[in-house]
Each structure stands twice: as structure tokens, then as C-alpha cells.
Simulated scan of single mutants.
Amino acid sequence: MGAGSVGCHLGGWLAAAADVTLVGRPSLVDAVQREGLTVTDLRGHTRTVPPEGLTLATEASAVEGADYVLLTTKTLGTATAVRQISPFLRHDSVVVSFQNGLRNASQIDEALASAFPSRASRPLVLSGMVPFNVVRSGETHWTQTTSGRLKVKDHPRVDPLVRAAQGGGLQLDVEPDMRAVLFGKLLLNLNNAINALTGLPLAVELRDRDCRVVLAACQEEALALARRLSITPARLTPLPAAAMPTLLRSPTPVFANLSRSALKVSPTARSSMADDLDAGRTTEIDELQGAVVHFAGDHGVPAPVCARIVELVREAEAAGADRQRWSGAQLRRAVGL
């Protein structure tokens, strides 16, 4: 549900082992009906699914009868999407949030409550996590551009989805503590705003030490919040989360050498937030640096750099095509570092 870059990428691989329905915008559905769907992983393995290998739909009613509904909308669209699909879910349906942010599963469950007042009859909602970046490399071609393994909350009812993912060529791990996983992903996602503000490809931006210093400061504020909340962020790279700011601040040759095995980035990779700004769409900043600011305020943890990044992204949203493309040095000065 909400088949964009992530939804099409997941659906394209799952189609080899499951009956997949993509619910997306009419323009996307029309294109896939003409050309099929092509997906490529980070190793360069490619699969094309012909149009008849998928069910394509623009209406939420297409989720009727689904065993699993993978929600891949932007977080801003969560409430609307859940209202749309609620009339067509069964009590034994499983809804998995493959979205950015810390709060999606709880928001989905709350939104379902009006349609299913009894918790016992309510569809099961599970947190999921997509660690990698996906870019649209053609009209109906989606390519994974960074490394990582999918995660989903460990639950007996998720086992068939895990088997389907593995059968389709996706690496999907079950995790008992998704709160730690989502916080670990948040630390990585804090770079989305920095990448979007610079307008640079990820590989170029990460070679800019000033950009990395800004990211390190955002991560340190998030890590301070995690300590206050008694959360140990999951280790999503070979490096422990607490050591990431130190690596980011290291000289570029040192960073490049130490991160080579931990962070594989395609030359074409860029954050989805950069795409949102280019397209004039509202971004997910409230679920990234904005979430750090929100929870930090509730728990008395200072987060001035994250707050300033939120301001700059809001300014960029308002400026549209005339927005400033920040250099790393300019951005570092703008946040007071």
C-alpha cells in the first residue's frame, strides 16, 4: 500500500514467491501495466516482473483478502492510508510498517481502533525497517543503492512473510526489539536532511567532512536522548552506534577507509528527502530530526543542531525550486558548529 520506490522494490522481489498487489498512483500503475516492473539489488542482480505477474491497483479496496499489507507510504500519509484500507482488512490481516520513523506502528494501531474497537479482533500491526536506499533508475525500474538487511518484528504470524521474502531473494531478519532497531535506523536517517539540503549525491556528500560533522552532532543529540530513554540503538553497521559520531568526524581518508566495508553506496544514491524537495513535496523531517527535537523536549535533553536542521528544511520546503543548495561548510556554520 503506497507503492513508491520502496514498495515497488519490495513488491518486485516478493512477486517471485507470493501473489503481490501494488496499490499506487495511476501514473505508476499505467507505466507498470505497459512495461512490467524491474528491480535491481546492490550486487547488480536484476529481475523483471511482467505486468501479468502483479495485480496493479489505484484503490485501497485492492488490499481485500490480503494476508499481509506492507505499508510503504511516507509517514505523512499513514493516517490517510489506514483509513482507506481499514474497511477491507480482515481481523486476521497483518499490517507491517516499512516506513521511516519511530512511531508508525503505534499510529497505525491507533488509526485502526476506530474500525476495530475490540483489540482482540483488530489486525495485527508490526514494525518493519528498510535499511537501504532505493532510487528510481527508469520509469519502471527501481534500484537498491545502499547496503543493509530488512528487519521485521519477531512474531509467530510473520513467519510466512519471512519465507516469501527469502524465496523472492530478499534478506528479511526477525528482531525481538524493534524499538532498538528503529532508533538505530533513525541515527542513519538523520543524514537524509543533510543530503537533501546539499543536493549532492550521497557518496559525494559523505566525502565532505563538514557534512559529516553536522551529521555527527545530530547523532550525538539522538544518542543522548536514547540514553535518557534507556534505549541501546541496534547495531545496523559493523560499527556500534555510539562510535558513529567519532568515525564521522575523522579525516576523510580515515573515514573512507574505515567505512568502506560498513557502508556501500552507489554513485547514484541520494536521499528520498532530496527527491521530495526537488518535487516540491512536504518532507518527513518531523519523523527524523523533528522526532529527536520532540522527544528531547519531553525529556529535558538539548537538541539545538537537530532543531536548526528542521528549520532549514522547512525553509527549503517553502522556497521550492529557489531553495539554497548548501555546501558542507555553509551548513556547518548555519547550525553553529
Rank of each mutant, 00 (worst) to 15 (best):
Arg163Glu: 15
Leu202Gln: 11
Arg163Ala: 15
Gly168Trp: 10
Ala164Asn: 10
Asp173Lys: 07
Asp154Tyr: 04
Leu215His: 12
Arg157His: 05
Asp173Tyr: 04
Leu170Asn: 13
Leu215Asn: 00
Ser137His: 07
Val213Thr: 14
Asp208Arg: 08
Pro131Cys: 06
Gly199Phe: 05
Gly169Ala: 08
Lys153Tyr: 05
Leu161Ala: 10
Val214His: 09
Asp159Arg: 15
Met178Lys: 10
Phe132Pro: 07
Val213His: 06
Thr140Gln: 06
Glu175Gln: 14
Leu200Pro: 01
Leu187Tyr: 09
Asp154Gly: 06
Arg136Ala: 11
Val152Thr: 07
Arg179Thr: 13
Leu206Glu: 13
Ala203Met: 11
Val135Arg: 14
Arg136His: 01
Val162Arg: 13
Gln144Ala: 09
Leu187Met: 09
Gly199Arg: 00
Pro156Ile: 12
Asn195Leu: 06
Asp159Lys: 15
Asp159Thr: 15
Arg157Gly: 01
Val174Ser: 14
Val135His: 09
Gln144Tyr: 05
Gly168Cys: 12
Trp142Ala: 04
Lys153Thr: 06
Gly199Thr: 06
Val152Glu: 03
Ala164Phe: 08
Ala217His: 03
Arg207Glu: 15
Arg149Ala: 15
Asn192Phe: 10
Thr198Leu: 03
Leu172Val: 08
Leu188Ala: 14
Asn191Gln: 06
Arg163Trp: 00
Pro176Glu: 12
Leu188Gln: 13
Ile194Glu: 05
His141Phe: 07
Asn133Val: 04
Arg179Asp: 13
Arg212Gln: 00
Glu220Leu: 06
Gln219Lys: 13
Lys151Val: 00
Glu220Gln: 15
Leu186Asn: 11
Val204His: 11
Thr145Trp: 06
Thr146Pro: 05
Pro176His: 08
Val181Ser: 07
Asp210Ile: 01
Trp142Ile: 11
Pro201Met: 09
Arg149Gly: 01
Asp159Trp: 02
Asn192Ile: 07
Val213Phe: 00
Asp177Gly: 07
Glu220Cys: 09
Asn189Cys: 09
Gln219Ala: 05
Leu172Ile: 05
Leu202Asn: 10
Asp154Cys: 08
Asn133Arg: 01
Phe183Met: 15
Gln166Val: 04
Ser137Leu: 00
Leu150Arg: 04
Val135Tyr: 03
Val214Glu: 05
Gly168Gln: 12
Asp177Val: 02
Cys218Asp: 08
Gln219Asp: 08
Phe132Leu: 06
Ala180Phe: 05
Leu172Tyr: 10
Asn195Glu: 00
Asp154Leu: 08
Glu175Ala: 13
Lys185Gly: 08
Glu175Val: 05
Glu205Cys: 07
Trp142Tyr: 15
Asp177Ser: 05
Asp177Pro: 04
Arg179Cys: 04
Ser137Ile: 04
Val213Asn: 10
Ala193Leu: 04
Thr140Pro: 13
Gln219Val: 01
Gly138Glu: 07
Ala165Cys: 14
Gly148Pro: 14
Gln144Asp: 04
Arg209Gln: 14
Cys211Pro: 02
Ile194Met: 02
Gly148Arg: 11
Gln219Pro: 02
Thr198Ile: 01
Gly184Leu: 07
Arg212Lys: 07
Leu187Cys: 10
Val135Phe: 00
Val204Gly: 00
Leu200Met: 13
His141Trp: 10
Lys153Glu: 10
Leu206Pro: 00
Lys153Val: 03
Gly168Asp: 08
Leu161Met: 11
Asn189Arg: 04
Pro156Asn: 07
Ala193Asn: 03
Arg209Asn: 11
